[in-house]
Amino acid sequence: MTTATLSSKGQITIPIEVRTELKVNTGDRVEFVQIAPGRYEFVAATRDITELKGMFGPAQAMVTLEDMDAAVAQASAAAAR
């Protein structure tokens, strides 16, 4: 297991093995994705969006564009009240 230590400024140094595996370099962005309460996944934000397919499992429900438009309109109307 690879570990890192948190500094007093809230910073960590990512070990070289991890940087190499994730193909991240100085200035690259990373994301912390919550996968469960108290558990996060560290993800390089330099990936192509298509590589993220399946990260969260299958879709729980299919939503049409019309459904999305209706939800946005409903939320907008509720916010205007």
Rank of each mutant, 00 (worst) to 15 (best):
Q11P: 04
Q11I: 09
Q11F: 07
T13L: 12
T13K: 14
I14F: 08
I14P: 04
I14A: 07
I14G: 00
P15W: 03
I16R: 14
I16K: 14
I16W: 11
E17R: 08
E17V: 10
E17D: 15
V18I: 07
V18L: 08
T20F: 09
T20L: 12
T20M: 08
E21K: 14
E21H: 10
E21A: 11
E21N: 12
L22G: 04
L22W: 05
L22P: 14
K23P: 09
K23H: 02
K23W: 10
V24R: 11
V24N: 07
N25S: 15
N25A: 14
N25M: 12
T26F: 13
T26Y: 12
G27M: 10
D28G: 01
D28E: 10
R29F: 03
R29I: 07
R29C: 04
R29A: 06
V30W: 00
V30S: 07
F32Q: 10
F32V: 03
F32C: 02
F32L: 13
F32P: 01
V33Q: 11
Q34H: 05
Q34G: 03
Q34E: 02
I35N: 10
I35S: 09
I35C: 04
A36H: 01
A36Y: 03
A36W: 00
A36K: 12
P37I: 06
P37M: 01
P37T: 08
G38N: 03
G38V: 03
R39I: 04
R39M: 11
R39H: 09
R39Q: 07
Y40M: 14
Y40T: 09
Y40L: 13
Y40C: 07
E41H: 06
E41C: 06
E41F: 08
E41L: 15
F42D: 06
F42T: 02
V43W: 00
V43D: 00
V43N: 00
V43A: 03
V43Y: 01
V43I: 10
A44C: 10
A44E: 03
A45R: 01
A45I: 01
T46F: 06
T46K: 12
R47Y: 14
R47T: 09
D48M: 15
D48I: 04
I49W: 04
I49K: 02
I49F: 05
T50L: 15
T50W: 06
T50G: 09
E51G: 10
E51A: 11
L52P: 00
L52M: 05
L52G: 05
K53V: 15
K53G: 10
K53H: 09
K53N: 14
G54K: 01
G54L: 10
G54E: 04
M55H: 03
M55T: 09
M55D: 15
M55S: 08
F56V: 09
G57D: 03
G57S: 01
G57V: 02
G57R: 01
P58T: 05
P58A: 05
P58L: 06
P58F: 02
P58G: 05
P58H: 05
P58S: 02
A59Q: 11
A59F: 06
A59I: 08
Q60E: 15
Q60N: 13
Q60R: 13
Q60I: 13
